[in-house]
Write a protein that binds this DNA or RNA. Sequence first.
DNA 1: ACGTAATTTTAGACTTATCTAAAAATAATT
DNA 2: AATTATTTTTAGATAAGTCTAAAATTACGT
Lengths: 220, 220
Amino acid sequence: MPLSYTEENYIKAIFKLSEKDDQPVNTNAIAKSIATTAASVTDMIKKLSEKGFVYYERYKGVTLSPEGKSVATQLIRNHRLWEVFLVNKLQFGWDQVHDLAEELEHIKSTDLINRLDTFLGNPKFDPHGDPIPNREGKFTLRNQTTLGTLLTDQTGILVGVREHTTPFLAYLNGLNINLGTELKIIERIQFDRSVKVQINGKEMSMFTEQVSQNLFVKLK
Amino acid sequence: MPLSYTEENYIKAIFKLSEKDDQPVNTNAIAKSIATTAASVTDMIKKLSEKGFVYYERYKGVTLSPEGKSVATQLIRNHRLWEVFLVNKLQFGWDQVHDLAEELEHIKSTDLINRLDTFLGNPKFDPHGDPIPNREGKFTLRNQTTLGTLLTDQTGILVGVREHTTPFLAYLNGLNINLGTELKIIERIQFDRSVKVQINGKEMSMFTEQVSQNLFVKLK
DNA sequence: ACGTAATTTTAGACTTATCTAAAAATAATT
DNA sequence: AATTATTTTTAGATAAGTCTAAAATTACGT
Ligand SMILES: [Mn+2]
Ligand SMILES: [Mn+2]
Ligand SMILES: [Mn+2]
Ligand SMILES: [Mn+2]
């Protein structure tokens, strides 16, 4: 009884929504996250519950079972390895690969994925700096410091982005900002918490708080 | 109005069944080729006809329209390029890649496929020696001579296989026969049209007619 | 604690793709 | 030419996934 693409997408959505707090996930949250209606979500949750991938009590939200977590982790591994392939081997930009990986992740073959992993040199992070779980489903932890928390004169090296939307990534492209780029805080504006930043020791740029909160860095 | 995987598989099946004679394809033939029932085929053909991918008259069989042919060609291009990737880059055997390519071929992105083509060095043939259509859908013609037609003492270089089944390819693996392998006819047995063959100037082997008819060669 | 607002679930309908069994059309035999 | 056999189509059901609209439940404000 293999899972359909649709079932897999629901399981992944539930996983991502419960990543932070580990609390039961609301019907409406799932509906918004995969652009469908609450009614459809309820239907699907019932099915996933019967199949043992989620724990569900009506009106009380839904939680992934260990089997569900395992499915989600495998999908995330697939997704991120394909993204590495698309960027490192096929020269796609990091703002162009999400939707393709969203399809490729559903090709079910652990052999394929493990060979791809080897071919890519067992990368630990995807093109957006997100950790790639290993064969056993273990994630390497990534630095969660954001540029917004750095003090004046400190330099951060970009190790990830929280936002994965094309507009945001394309905006960073326009500033020549990639993973590994050095970002030095020149000045902090108290009024709106925006920051003046020097990029790779050269150009200056202003970041709103919304931008600096979405950039994960490690201190240089 | 994108095509579903199912619709695409029907179109590809019709293309393959009309490749040789270019005659209308029978309902039963399609049903057998994709392991479904004649009733399902009739339903699908009606839909494909309404969408303009096939010409159809009831009880008279079905033919692909130019749009249908274009879809089929694109799918075959995708399929064969993915097979090259799986064999050349991920080290799969030529007997292991068909089913994976059967899924990968449906990822719809000409950008992806063209980049893959470039990455692989614009191969003209897939791991089974089948021609890969170019961006415009043009096929390179492959030598159609079979080993069965060679005379005694002639040597053929394997350029393709007609059968793509795993058992047949695994059988060739066991004899160390791949594309490029030299096959010299040592003796022809009139009685059952089997042949004694020397492989790469070394081992001898007997091939039944069924085998030698499925090996495409070019004269050395 | 009571009424209102928000959330969630149910009811009923629709689409795509599939199937079995029966009817209709075409092909083959005598 | 009539009968039989084969192929193809239709009729009617089923399953997965989706939707809108209405009912049920929970949460919130006073
Ligand atoms: Mn997906
Ligand atoms: Mn990513
Ligand atoms: Mn396919
Ligand atoms: Mn092939």
